[in-house]
Amino acid sequence: MYKISRLQIYIIILIAISMQIGPLNYLKIFGMKPDVVLISVVFFGLLLGPGAGLEAGIAAGLLKDIFTLDFFWINTFIMALAGLCVGMASDKFFKESKKAVFTVVLFTTILSMSAHYFLVYIFSKNFALNYFSYFLSSVMPACIYTGLVSIPLYIAFVNIYNLKEADDYI
């Protein structure tokens, strides 16, 4: 059984999206803010498995889609995929390692932002943004920033829910 209830997962996602809409906009570095919604989805996938990762991803993506002026389904799709993939690969990582968490968050951010770019590139008309410049100006700062922010959040998350034993994670 999870130590984290379903209601708690949704509450954490709601808090993350509220932070993303409000205060985090004042903590931008190089025009980018840390994606705490993606971080929460990665945590749920990593610690609770693919089912919870997928569920958290769908909920978080749907909320993101509501508050953004992008294609409506795009965030739901990407976040759900991210939660599912991290959940499926969760047994390959040593979850107590902060470096592992940083690496997972870093690569999930790179892959999700790149997937976002290519999906918009396919479905948008007259899309003019060059991937290389997008990668350098947006993806790089965002992934490093998000990865760094994920470490203290992970420590707090594990301590709050007292996730110490292997059984707590699954």
Binding site: I17, Q20, I21, G22, N25, M32, K33, D35, V37, L63, K64, F67, T68, L69, D70, N75, M113, H116, Y117, V120, S138, A142
Partner: peptide, 13 residues
């Protein structure tokens, strides 16, 4: 009263 939650879009509420 709000801003876009993603790093991709730039919009305000």
């Amino acid at each position: 009263i709000g801003r876009d939650p993603s790093n991709w879009s730039n919009s305000i509420i």
